[in-house]
Amino acid sequence: MISANPGQSSNPAVRIENLDKYYGTFHALRHVNLSVERGERIVVCGPSGSGKSTMIRCINRLEQHNGGRITVLGTELNDDVGNIDEIRREVGMVFQHFNLFPHMTVLDNCMLAPMIVRKQPRAEAEATARRYLEKVRIPEQALKFPGQLSGGQQQRVAIARALCMQPQIMLFDEPTSALDPEMISEVLDVMVTLASEGMTMICVTHEMGFARRVADRVIFMDGGEIVEEAPPEEFFASSRNERTRQFLSQVLGH
C-alpha cells in the first residue's frame, strides 16, 4: 500500500475551502475544508444525509455550491462554463446506480465521450475502450447491452467508461451500495488495482475493509461537516471523536 504524504502542498489535486451548500433552508455542507494531493486516495464515510455525496458532486459541478471555493487541478470551479468543461474532462465519476446508457453497447458506452468530447478518431477511441474493458476484466462483453449484464459487470463497465476519458481524478459515489453482496468484491478489486497505479481517488463508501487497505486518509462526515480525518490505522484504532466511534461501531458491528 503506497502512502502519500498528506499535507499541504502548493498544487493539490482538489482544494476545498469553506464550502457551503444550501438546499433551500437546509444547510447541507457547513464550511467544509479539504485538500487532496495528487495520487492520494481519500475515503469519505458517514451516516446518510451527512453531505458526503453532496460534497463530491460539487467537485464536478453536478451540484452548485453556495459559498466558499473549490479549486480542481489549479482551476477554480465557478460559473465560468469554460472552467466547468475543463474540469469535467479531467474528473471521472462512478455512480451508485451505474447510469450506463442502455441504448448503446458496452463498447459504445466507453467510446462515446472520448470521440465527441475529446474529438478522438474512432479507431483510437475503440482501442482505448478495449484496453480499459480488458483492465476491468470483461473484454468479452464489449458488444453486449447494459441490460444484459449483471450489476457487478455494469459497474465495472461504468468504471471503464470513466477511465476511457483518462481523467486525473476519479470520484466514486457509493459504487457498491446498489450491488448484491457477491458482486461487491469484483468491483472493489478493480478499485484497488486503480489505487495501486497511483490514481487520485475520492471515494464515498461504507466498505471499511477497502478503506483500511487502500486509503491514505479516511474522512468522517456528519451533519454537513468533516468531523474527523486521519490515516486509516489511526482512524479505526483510536479515533478521537465520539461521533466517529459511534458510527464505526454501527457500521463495523454487524
Binding site: D79, D80, V81, G82
Partner: peptide
C-alpha cells in the same frame, strides 16, 4: 468574453 462564459450571465 469572460462575462459571456459566466453561467449566470448566460442564463
Amino acid at each position: 468574453s469572460s462575462l459571456l462564459r459566466n453561467q449566470k450571465v448566460r442564463n
